[in-house]
């Protein structure tokens, strides 16, 4: 017996396009996140260097990663919503 979704979903023609965008954005974030881990592992003193607004790199990079996630989320949602509206005229939220 196969399982079904809890709510019946209408056909979505934008799945492929959204998935592709998701993978690209994931890779971008992964690269930035990996940069933080690599610096912390190989050049930890660099994180103590003053960078922006009197803050050291650790604070700027760490907070930057959190803010970047939110900003990228908004961008992703904007494009996905556009794809859905263009490709599924009949689908409504």
């Amino acid at each position: 017996m196969l399982h079904e979704p809890a709510a019946q979903l209408s056909k979505d023609h934008s799945i492929q396009k959204k998935a592709k965008l998701g993978i690209i954005m994931f890779i971008v974030y992964l690269v930035v996140y990996s940069g933080f881990v690599v610096i912390g592992t190989l050049w930890p003193r660099l994180l103590g260097v003053e960078s922006l607004f009197g803050q050291n790199l650790a604070v700027v990079y760490g907070m930057g990663l959190i803010i970047l996630a939110a900003v990228m989320g908004l961008i992703y949602n904007y494009f996905c919503t556009r794809y859905e509206d263009e490709m599924n005229k009949e689908e409504a939220l």
């Binding site: 979903l9 998935a19 993978i23 994931f26 974030y29 996140y33 760490g62 996630a69 990228m72």
Partner: peptide, 23 residues
Amino acid sequence: IGYLAGWVVALFLVAEPLKRLGK
């Protein structure tokens, strides 16, 4: 930082396909 970054994986890769598949 790490806990929040995990949500990026959830958003970009997992959220919508999982919604399609699960019950």
